[in-house]
Amino acid sequence: MVIYLKAGGELRAKLQPDVDDCTRRVETEAGVSLRDILAGIGINPAFVAFALKGGDVKRLDYVPAEGDVITLQPPVSGG
């Protein structure tokens, strides 16, 4: 199945977008968690704090469905 991952800021370079300047098309098997998908495309999950699908936060144990568009959000630690 195919999903689309988006990222902004410093995560964008790690994502290596190929659809537009912030989106990457990823082919994956069904039933695989976002954490494992990220690891499979060479993104260390420690660089992703959480993800967004629509208006909801998704954790890295989320299992995407066909056609999902998921935005990756980086850890933010400064104050």
């Binding site: 800021g9 410093e10 704090a49 954790r59 890295l60 850890p75």
Partner: peptide, 26 residues
């Protein structure tokens, strides 16, 4: 609240009414 570069996050956590920071990230 937290910031990095151009990006900032803010949330209001008050379990059990809401989740907590550990629900959001590990």
């Amino acid at each position: 609240g937290a910031v990095h570069g151009w990006l900032g996050y803010a949330g209001f956590f008050h379990p059990p009414q809401t989740g907590c920071l550990a629900c959001l990230m590990q």
